[in-house]
Amino acid sequence: MSVINKEVGCGLFFITVGGLFLQQASGLEIGSVRSMGPGYMPGVLSILLIVIGLIVAGKGIWTAREVLPKLPLRALIFILVPPLLFALMIGPFGLALSMFVLAACAAMADRTTRLPQAVLIGLIMSALCVTLLVWALGVPIRVIGPALQFWGG
């Protein structure tokens, strides 16, 4: 654990991002300096990013610094997953239900929030979005999706 400090972590982060882009850029036509292909800039830049990552990580190994911070797992899950649920639900179920799920789940990111409170927050947020943004403002989003059409007509 002592080797993986903040600097090394950042270096690894750059190396990973650079590596991902380099993999994506491979297979693109590179061309020449005078007539660059679509792969020229991405290729050069991702290699540069990997090099920078190596330097940052290398410096980090020799000069021990702050340890890697702990990640707030609860917040990460309850903040990052609900938008994904929303994205999956908005098509079939419409705004009202998706928004309720989004807000209620997100509210649980705070460990002092109880389930009834979260449900209430979800209801209020969903109602606000539907009345204010869709009905009053006219944003063209379906409130009740096709999967629930038997309710809404």
């Binding site: 997100a106 705070d110 002092t112 927050i121 947020m125 989003i141």
Partner: peptide, 18 residues
């Protein structure tokens, strides 16, 4: 902030999607 952050998230999600 306990009540504010769900609202901010709703705000962001709606804004980005719509």
């Amino acid at each position: 902030y306990k009540y504010l952050f769900p609202a901010i998230l709703v705000f962001a999600v709606f804004g980005v999607y719509a």
